[in-house]
Nucleic acid binder design. Structure first.
Lengths: 236, 236
DNA sequence: TGCGTGACCAGATTCGACATCTGGTCACGC
DNA sequence: GCGTGACCAGATGTCGAATCTGGTCACGCA
């Protein structure tokens, strides 16, 4: 059997599941309809995933992997994006663009239903790895003078996580008062994190260039891990 | 009839309702049990409030009024608490202390049930007034050089609201990673807001003293408005 | 020979009629 | 004349019947 064909079919099933998940929500999505939209028999769905939850979890994991991918691409295109302010700015823009991430981070139970709880349990490892990546990123940047040392690394992690959480939640909690353009809101997050953690003035390009490879390597590892998690849901 | 006695009875009913709301949640609270705990007949409850929702809304409004009261007391005790970083630090500590505010701001539907939706509709005016107070506070402090002018007032409002939202949500979303002591978490919020909005270095005490009366007057007005809203729920 | 399929079944979910509970009223009595 | 609790209509909960759906597997097509 063609491995490529199998993989392509798997993607088609994921696409159909993703479409249905966003349109109907977890509770209303049926294995029958996923198979119909993906143009395969229902049994074929179960040749790829052991059950419906594993399939829908894979939809969420694929969105997260794509998110990590975009983050990594940005850092490779412009190393200044390794700075926490710029990295979180990008993360917020990605979040605003991707309806699956929106549903996941806003805990939209209309869409995710109990999938959120399942995802939380299954993603513990990945979230932990994300936190470790952030910790390592902050440590590296401190060593290069790109992040201040007036707070501990743990405190800076909390600042990053709490602040980005606020801007994410603000997307739904403060629909009025929000500056109209997504970029403007992302720039405000950037400003908040930069002033909280980074030294004044523009970052030294040589320090950025020196710190980039290490940070990018860690993010590449995180991206690889998230792609692994998508595959891990597959039956074989 | 003694007006004092009536008011005292009203408080007792509010206390009982508050206790039950936190212990049982909106859905399980009954007018019968509130009356029993407050040692009054059920009819008496309805002499004070036109229905159960108005009573439970009054519970929430009373918590919000007490919150405004504490904020005002702090500003009067130490005028430096008019600075946004210090004001939001206090707001976060208050939030962490008061279970009703916790339920309200975290949208705890186990406790509030549909009361949250009712409150959102009824509180539009008060929330709007709170935002106007914040806007006026920022303008006043900018005029006294206590808040920077590198962002617009609207942008600074969004920074305040989004950031405090994040630290509030972080209380439940990041139970691990959170520094153990509430004060430490509040200090991190203080740091974040201060670096985002305020000039470097300690604030000029004379500028603070000059700006304080105006800001305190606005907060006093807000507190009065919130007390009015509690009374407005009463039947007479 | 082996991958893909859809009819099939057990168990989960939904529905709706019936029973119980509770918000709000008001005639009574202290 | 204010406070009360018995009372009632409508809201809410219960539980079995009917329907739906996840997951399997015997079959057939390539």
């Amino acid at each position: 059997m063609e491995a490529d064909e199998r993989a392509e079919r798997g993607e088609r099933i994921l696409d159909a599941a993703c479409e249905l998940l966003l349109a109907w929500g977890y509770r209303r999505v049926t294995a029958d309809e996923i198979a119909r939209r993906a143009d395969v028999g229902k049994g074929t769905v179960y040749l790829h995933w052991k059950n419906k939850d594993a399939l829908l979890l894979a939809v969420v994991l694929r969105a997260k992997a794509a998110d990590h991918r975009r983050q990594l691409d940005r850092m490779r295109a412009d190393p200044r994006d390794i700075l926490p302010s710029r990295a979180l700015r990008g993360a917020l823009l990605d979040f605003m663009d991707d309806p699956v991430l929106r549903a996941l981070y806003l805990d939209d139970s209309d869409i995710l239903g109990r999938l959120h709880d399942i995802a939380k349990k299954e993603l513990v490892e990945l979230v932990e790895a994300g936190h470790e990546t952030l910790r390592s990123q902050l440590s590296t940047l401190r060593a290069h003078g790109l992040v201040r040392e007036d707070l501990s690394v743990d405190q800076q992690m909390y600042v990053c996580l709490a602040t980005v959480t606020g801007y994410v939640q603000a997307e739904v909690l403060l629909p009025d008062h929000a500056p109209g353009r997504p970029e403007e809101r992302a720039d405000l997050l950037c400003h908040t994190v930069r002033t909280a953690l980074e030294p004044h003035g523009d970052p030294d390009p040589r320090a950025v260039a020196a710190a980039a490879p290490g940070v990018i390597t860690r993010y590449a590892r995180l991206e690889e891990l998230s792609r692994q998690e998508v595959r891990r849901q597959l039956r074989q």
